[in-house]
């Protein structure tokens, strides 16, 4: 088991965004975190990354309790994030964003990881010197995932995989995700596009107002969409 949340309560100061959440994510699997706006998906991710306060409960990674480690220690253990809104360093070029991503790696590993990113996202090689702030939405998402890959993660979290992307870009990103999975990386996705997430996911959790309202195998949700559509308004999603 790669990552486990045990009765996690997290939030911001006095405001609690996630209530008593327990999740288990298995090594090499894709876990999809779904739910309406404001459900607490991003808060969960950022709490695992070490940026949102965990009030109580624990985060177990690879058998160790990492609940109290600062964010920079978590990344050294293999946890990486492509966060909501991408949060690239806008004034830095593509190349430099990747440099920051690989900050903790030795220079041989850095070069190898960079090659891997470019193999998955050849588009990025065409504009190495372009500031990230001027990239298109799709390029920004590729760079956000690429920057996270530079840390050589064993556990990768991607928030809003396909938000604002045209279908071709969505495919590029999902190809990358499946490739990473084939390399044994465990992946946690947050996705607005429920159908797309269910296609690749192994496990699913639906959050609503900070509470887990459904958890189970993606297989079950695929077979019986009605299972989770009540929570998500999938009817609207599939009409779009």
């Amino acid at each position: 088991m790669m990552l486990q949340l045990k009765n996690a309560n997290c939030g911001y100061g006095a405001f609690q965004a996630v209530h008593d959440l327990s999740l288990t994510m298995e090594q090499g699997k894709i876990f999809a975190l779904l739910g309406p706006n404001g459900a607490g998906k991003s808060s969960t991710i950022m709490s695992i990354a070490g940026h949102v306060q965990l009030f109580s409960g624990s985060i177990i990674f690879d058998g160790d309790d990492i609940s109290h480690l600062p964010a920079r220690e978590r990344v050294k253990r293999g946890i990486a994030v492509a966060p909501e809104g991408r949060r690239l360093f806008p004034d830095l070029t593509i190349e430099e964003n990747l440099t920051v991503g690989g900050y903790c790696q030795s220079s041989e590993k850095e070069a190898r990881n960079r090659d891997m990113v470019f193999a998955l996202f050849p588009r990025l090689t065409e504009r190495l010197k372009q500031p990230a702030g001027t990239l298109s939405g799709g390029e920004q998402q590729m760079l956000a995932i690429g920057r996270a890959m530079m840390t050589e993660p064993r556990f990768l979290m991607i928030d809003e995989v396909s938000l604002g992307l045209m279908p071709k870009m969505v495919d590029v990103c999902y190809n990358a995700i499946e490739h990473l999975k084939s390399q044994g990386v465990t992946i946690l996705l947050v996705e607005q596009n429920t159908r797309r997430a269910l296609e690749v996911a192994d496990q699913v959790c639906v959050l609503e107002s900070g509470n887990a309202v459904w958890q189970g195998a993606a297989e079950d949700a695929r077979k019986d969409p009605a299972l989770i559509e009540a929570f998500l308004g999938m009817a609207k999603d599939s009409a779009a």
Partner: peptide, 24 residues
């Protein structure tokens, strides 16, 4: 320099920089 690049990144978004292992 590598550290210079990381420095500029940290000035624009310290939290994200920390996510990549930077000791802010």
């Amino acid at each position: 320099t590598r550290f210079g690049t990381v420095w500029r990144a940290t000035v624009t978004d310290p939290d994200m920089a920390e996510s990549f292992g930077v000791d802010i």
